[in-house]
Simulated assay, not measured.
Amino acid sequence: MAPKLDTAQMHKYWTKTSALMWTIFALWIFFSFVAPLFAVQLNSIRFLGFPLGFYMAAQGSLIAFVVLCVWNAIAQNKIDEEFGVQED
C-alpha cells in the first residue's frame, strides 16, 4: 500500500510531475508540428546522406518520440522514489 502524503508533499509531487508532463508535451508538439513546418528549409542540410527534412520526417521524429517516452519513464520513477510512492 502506498504511503499517505500530506498536502504539502502532494503539492510538491504534483508540481514536479506536472512540470515534467508539460515539458515532454512541449517537445512532442515541437517534433510533431513545428519541425515538419521547416522541412523544405531543412532539406538544404544533409544528414547521413539524406536531406534533413526527409530524415526528420522518416526517422528523426520517431526517434525523438521514443527518447521522450524513455525520458518520461525514468524521470517519473525518480520523482516517485523521491516521494516514496514508487511501485515495487
Rank of each mutant, 00 (worst) to 15 (best):
M1D: 13
M1E: 11
A2N: 12
A2D: 14
A2S: 12
A2I: 03
P3K: 14
P3D: 15
L5N: 08
L5F: 04
D6V: 06
D6G: 13
A8M: 06
Q9T: 09
M10K: 11
M10N: 08
H11R: 13
H11E: 13
H11Y: 12
K12T: 14
T15S: 15
T15C: 15
T15A: 15
S18P: 10
S18Q: 05
A19E: 02
L20F: 02
L20A: 10
L20T: 10
M21V: 09
I24Y: 08
I24F: 10
F25M: 04
F25Q: 00
F25Y: 09
F25G: 01
A26E: 00
A26G: 07
A26Q: 02
L27H: 08
L27E: 09
L27Y: 11
L27T: 03
W28Q: 00
F30T: 15
F30N: 13
F30G: 14
S32L: 05
V34T: 02
V34F: 05
V34R: 05
A35Y: 02
P36F: 00
P36E: 05
P36N: 06
L37D: 08
L37G: 11
F38N: 06
F38Q: 05
A39Y: 01
V40W: 06
V40R: 11
Q41G: 07
L42W: 05
L42N: 10
L42K: 06
S44D: 14
S44M: 10
I45L: 14
I45F: 15
R46F: 10
F47E: 03
F47M: 06
F47Q: 08
L48V: 15
L48W: 12
L48T: 14
L48C: 13
G49L: 03
G49W: 04
G49R: 04
G49H: 01
F50D: 07
F50V: 14
P51D: 08
L52W: 05
G53T: 01
G53Q: 00
G53Y: 04
G53L: 02
F54H: 13
Y55M: 11
M56A: 12
A58Y: 07
Q59M: 14
S61A: 12
S61W: 03
S61F: 00
L62M: 11
I63Q: 02
V66M: 10
V66C: 11
V66P: 05
V67M: 06
V67N: 02
L68Y: 01
V70K: 04
V70M: 01
V70Y: 05
V70F: 01
V70E: 04
W71E: 11
N72P: 07
N72H: 13
N72E: 09
A73L: 03
A73P: 04
A75P: 02
A75K: 09
A75W: 04
K78V: 08
K78T: 00
I79T: 03
I79Q: 06
I79C: 02
D80S: 09
E81F: 08
E82M: 07
E82C: 01
E82F: 06
E82Q: 10
F83A: 02
F83R: 02
G84F: 01
G84Q: 00
G84M: 00
G84C: 01
G84L: 01
V85R: 05
V85A: 06
Q86L: 09
E87Y: 14
E87L: 09
D88Q: 12
D88W: 02
D88I: 01
